[in-house]
């Protein structure tokens, strides 16, 4: 399952998507939990009883701001969450 957390408003589209098939049985020891400076990731048991990461509810409405520090306007080469997730489950839409 691709779970998209975030929103789209007039200013843009801000989704972090998590590929749960790659997230289940994480081989990176849930590195996303500590990699994110805002600690937005959390492990939950989803509706299909799989243990996967998701983005904490309040952050789903503020992603553009929450991720701003990791995305300086002058450019960046990698994001801590994506770098930490070696199975490659995490993607950003912006």
């Amino acid at each position: 399952m691709i779970a998209n957390y975030g929103y789209k408003d007039g200013s843009g589209e801000y989704y972090i998507s998590i590929d749960t098939d790659k997230c289940i049985g994480c081989t990176a020891e849930r590195a996303c939990l500590t990699a994110c400076p805002k600690q937005m990731f959390e492990i939950i048991t989803d509706d299909y009883d799989d243990e996967v990461a998701w983005i904490k509810k309040p952050n789903c409405r503020t992603l553009a701001y929450d991720c701003a520090d990791c995305k300086p306007s002058g450019g960046y080469s990698s994001l801590p969450c994506i770098a930490a997730c070696t199975p490659g489950a995490i993607k950003h839409s912006w």
Binding site: A64, Y65, D66, A68, D69, K71, P72, S73, G74
Partner: peptide, 12 residues
């Protein structure tokens, strides 16, 4: 202010 500030921090 916090929304505006988050944007300003992107430029430093």
């Amino acid at each position: 202010a916090s929304r505006v500030c988050a944007m300003v921090r992107r430029v430093g």
